[in-house]
Amino acid sequence: MTTTDSASSRPVYDAMARRASRSKVTDEAPSHEELGELVSVMSSVPDHSRLRPWRIIELRGKDRETLGKALAKANKTPKEKGISKATRAPLVLAVVVSPKQSKKVPYWEQETVAAGVAHFLSLLLAEAGWGTMWRTGHATRSKAVRKAMKLDKDEQLLGWIYVGGVPEHKRKHKPRKPLDLDQHLTSL
């Protein structure tokens, strides 16, 4: 396929061109089964030695409040503020690097695989009609958040994908500023 082919014959290109972060979402969210279907194709993420060094923690309902309390503790803010942050969407997906022992695949490469999973999953969720926002912050790798997310000692949290419905009036998004290809696509 060439770059002159129409966007309609390039569904991945078209999906990436349409994807936008959604900071405000409705109370709708994909079901566990719908989410499972999307996560099941993450085996296509480039992954040296097929280690699958990642996992996703699904947070709904009161589980989001657990996260919120941990965020408040880590950020030294009132509990209500943390809970408010963690409940901005009906579904919060914690993206976890779950490294595997390997003599040939370093940790940084395994972390990159987990980041790829987060990006692919965000794209799939957007294509399924859901609004997403990847959130991080200083508390992401704090002791309080690690404990609340029940991470194993070798695991690290990359952040959270907030997921919900897209409000009708927010279905269109502003065009992005084009990339300066002279800066982002260079030759040696």
Score class of each variant (00 low, 15 high):
18 R>V: 02
59 L>M: 05
87 T>H: 05
111 E>D: 07
107 Y>S: 00
45 V>A: 09
115 A>L: 07
88 R>K: 15
184 H>Y: 15
169 H>I: 10
44 S>Y: 11
84 S>E: 15
119 H>A: 15
58 E>M: 02
33 E>H: 11
70 A>I: 04
16 M>I: 15
98 S>K: 13
137 G>T: 02
159 G>A: 03
171 R>A: 06
20 A>E: 08
113 V>D: 04
19 R>W: 13
184 H>F: 15
43 S>L: 10
84 S>H: 10
109 E>C: 01
59 L>P: 01
150 K>C: 01
187 S>V: 14
9 S>N: 14
163 V>C: 09
17 A>E: 08
67 L>N: 09
170 K>F: 07
178 P>G: 03
183 Q>W: 04
166 V>Q: 06
107 Y>T: 00
148 A>F: 08
165 G>M: 02
113 V>H: 04
186 T>Q: 13
119 H>Q: 14
79 K>A: 11
97 V>Y: 02
103 K>P: 01
108 W>I: 05
35 L>N: 05
39 V>A: 11
76 K>F: 03
43 S>P: 00
2 T>A: 12
31 S>N: 04
71 L>G: 04
170 K>D: 14
177 K>F: 00
101 Q>C: 00
84 S>P: 01
33 E>N: 07
40 S>I: 10
158 L>P: 06
145 V>W: 04
70 A>H: 11
132 T>L: 07
16 M>R: 13
87 T>Y: 02
165 G>R: 05
13 Y>P: 00
117 V>M: 03
161 I>K: 10
75 N>Q: 14
142 S>D: 06
134 W>M: 12
40 S>Q: 12
73 K>C: 09
22 R>M: 14
126 A>F: 13
7 A>D: 13
87 T>E: 11
41 V>A: 06
11 P>I: 10
41 V>E: 09
42 M>C: 14
62 K>M: 01
50 R>G: 14
175 P>E: 12
187 S>W: 13
36 G>Q: 10
133 M>V: 14
58 E>R: 13
159 G>P: 06
45 V>Q: 02
6 S>T: 11
128 A>K: 15
163 V>G: 04
48 H>A: 10
93 L>S: 11
5 D>I: 04
